[in-house]
Write a protein that binds this DNA or RNA. Structure first.
Lengths: 227, 227
DNA sequence: ACCTCAAAAATGTGATCACGATTTCACGCC
DNA sequence: GGCGTGAAATCGTGATCACATTTTTGAGGT
């Protein structure tokens, strides 16, 4: 089970974007896609060297991620690491995701266009391809792309931020669980039904399918944690 | 309408607490209690001088608050300020508060003790006293104390963080609205009924009363924004 | 009085240095 | 060979400096 490590620094990013934003995006994407395992300790200087920046912008990016509970400072020695999930916290994550993501899907459905549906289908195809190849990392990436392509349409910045924070927290553990399960029994995704509901304009069905998709995925993680 | 300005630096805080945490707590409390108006611009060096620290820990505290959308960087000139609420964002705040706070109240109710009920009654008395004196700031403070005394019992750190973030965002605008309405017509609080439900162990009623309390308060803000 | 515009002050960002605490690791002892 | 033990490396935190950009200000002219 190879961890690809930190995401590449986004070279082609707008020059207007501050370094600390670029560092944040690189770290956030790596966490959401589960490319850093739970419990892994990280350090400011190490990250700074890997990204070829001074420790300063890394500190601000990390402070942001700590605020989102995507990283934590160990109380004992004040060192930085990716948090592990307790059952209590995982249950909260599940509940919160089931609040906000069906709502985001519902709002996004109202702004859907034919172009976006095509892109969603592409995401889902990449997801299926990754599944059949046993490519867990590809699955994580495609699944993330699919969900947030829809959520981004919602014009609900607060909800979007909440969802991002929840994915930041669940990403590392999700990657471990799905990697352990193997791609064979990964969530029999409701994406197909969701796309059909989007095409037919049935917004309530979109909400429902998203709720089921989230529930099923989190249920797998819960079983893995308890078992 | 006098704004008391920044909260005092928490002198009596544990020496183990890092400076940036102390700065964060001071800023966060000031924002939640609405002591900094929406649109108000702040600056790192000014804050650092007011709190007698170097700009460095202030930067980290501010970065945390930006992550919580309690502060924002204006895109035009990259300067720091307290955000103003659009109707869209206020509606999201209302929805999210109605998700998480009844749940926190429900969970907290299961851990309630006689001692905490006494403290909640004290909070509510201070709230009532502030109301009769027309003391908006006292009302804000007592209301905050009441809610989070209960929420703190819930042993749900994620939900608690979500609630804090939501209060950080609504605090400044809430203070403006309530200050404009005058204390006469402030939310006819459901705290009394909530306390009775806590005493009788009716957890479902606790959840319901909290939902109504949140809804009523946010409804006032919504009317103020539209009107 | 009122505009104009250049000098001065203030701002966020990033880099670098210093410090105390903690971890890491190799050397030498049992 | 295993195991403490001290030196060296690494850690997070805070302060200070440098820089480009923006805001504020104040003097001069009309």
């Amino acid at each position: 089970m190879g961890y690809p490590g930190l995401n590449q620094f986004p070279l082609a990013m707008d020059d207007e974007t501050s370094i600390h934003d670029q560092v944040y995006e690189a770290l956030a994407e790596s966490l959401i896609q589960g490319q850093i395992p739970p419990g892994k300790s990280v350090s400011l200087r190490t990250l700074a060297n890997e990204l070829n920046v001074s420790p300063m912008p890394v500190r601000e990016a990390v402070r942001r991620l700590i605020a989102q509970k995507a990283l934590e400072l160990q109380p004992s020695n004040k060192r930085l690491r990716v948090p592990s999930l307790s059952e209590n916290r995982l249950l909260q994550l599940m509940t919160a995701r089931q609040w906000v993501e069906p709502e985001l899907a519902f709002l996004g459905a109202q702004k859907i266009t034919r172009d976006v549906i095509v892109e969603l289908k592409n995401d889902d195809e990449r997801l299926m391809a990754a599944l059949s190849k046993g490519d867990v990392d590809g699955y994580m990436k495609a699944n993330y792309a699919f969900h947030f392509r829809l959520y981004n349409l919602a014009e609900a910045d607060l909800f979007l931020d909440m969802a991002r924070t929840l994915w930041l927290q669940s990403g590392p553990f999700m990657r471990v669980v799905f990697g352990r399960l193997g791609t064979v029994q990964l969530p029999q995704d409701h994406h197909q039904e969701l796309i059909r509901a989007l095409e037919s304009g049935d917004h309530a069905a979109v909400r429902q399918h998203m709720a089921e998709d989230v529930h099923e995925g989190m249920e797998l993680m819960l079983e893995a944690l308890k078992g």
